[in-house]
Design a protein around this nucleic acid. Structure first.
Lengths: 185, 185
DNA sequence: TCACAATGGAACAGCAATGTTCCAAAATCG
DNA sequence: CGATTTTGGAACATTGCTGTTCCATTGTGA
């Protein structure tokens, strides 16, 4: 059977096209997505019967990729500030996933996203470790730094988008500002 | 004529209801908004013939209020860091306007918002002044700090929303982080 | 080459929101 | 009070998207 080959490939193509299209136009129709994927609308419905099925898959895909990025950052290794910097870099390179989140903000409000994930816990843990070790400001709550890290991701990508900053420069700005923000007084 | 009295009042009621409703549900229908405003759907269409007219009005209203807040912060008075702190407070108190922007992110991409406003210019000017006077880090571009200031607004409100932080605490976090972020090395 | 899987397109029904019109009721103002 | 403005509701046509079915065509693997 072509099961693994063809089917998996078109599924992936639709998913990628959906991510890219919805990033630019959060209200894009199924037809728009089909066109972007070079696929008939019928085919899209064959893989994702309802729109919500497609959104579900996108959500799962994004969570998956974020999880992988978090793992790659090896947050438990070495000094906390360096670990956070690595995480920033990994997240920043997720690019389309990040930008999707920022424009399709309703994703954020889904249960899978609202509940504290393993990634959240790992991140909070390394922040708290830094606070104990004296490398991160203990005066502000760990949750705050967590939010700031995410917001700086958005800010960096916004610099790329609206100010035409090179990606590399934007990442540098992000890293420097995070370093200053978490530094102990 | 009741011109000034009644008409202005219902218009305002519809506008306020629209802001509040769209903040919670960016895709709310005209009917939803009418209900929220305690007004018939017909009446809404009487004041704002098309949906786009309503959105236009909301956009103008938000820009207007942001302009007033910027003016109140008197950015040209006193040391730059203090001026930015005042601006943060004023913006933070805009509350519903801020939250509307964050959930209806398509507002951001309208021409009125993309083009550099007078408020933007005033803000950039005070940042650059601080950089010359040695009170703000001159190594990072003024546009970056501008974006960071806005992002911290979002972050602070997000703390209120998802972490149940008291508004006052969230504002404090915002101010302290901004202070550290702009501080010269 | 042949059988079967996968696709594209057309056609259709259903639905929800939009925008419009009309009229009767209610509120406001002189 | 009486005239005029303002409103709410019902009704309607229109539009765009959704989800489904059917069939002919193309592609794939054995």
């Amino acid at each position: 059977m072509a099961e693994t080959g063809v089917r998996a490939r078109t599924r992936r193509a639709i998913l990628d096209a959906a991510i890219e299209t919805l990033t630019r136009t959060p209200n894009a129709s199924m037809g728009d997505i089909a066109t972007a994927a070079n696929v008939g609308r019928t085919t899209v419905h064959r893989y994702f019967p309802e729109r919500s099925d497609l959104i579900d898959a996108i959500s799962a895909d994004a969570l998956e990729r974020i999880g992988q990025a978090t793992a790659r950052a090896r947050l438990d290794d070495g000094p906390a500030p360096g670990a956070l910097a690595r995480l920033c870099q990994e997240y920043f390179e997720l690019g389309d996933v990040m930008n999707l989140l920022f424009t399709m903000s309703d994703l954020f409000f889904r249960p899978e996203w609202q509940e504290e994930s393993e990634d959240d816990r790992v991140l909070l843990r390394v922040i708290e470790r830094g606070q104990r070790e004296g490398t991160i400001d203990p005066e502000l709550p760990a949750e705050w730094f967590q939010q700031v890290l995410w917001s700086l991701q958005y800010t960096a990508w916004e610099m790329v988008r609206s100010q035409d900053k090179p990606k590399h420069d934007a990442l540098t700005l992000c890293l420097r500002t995070l370093a200053k923000a978490i530094a102990p007084v």
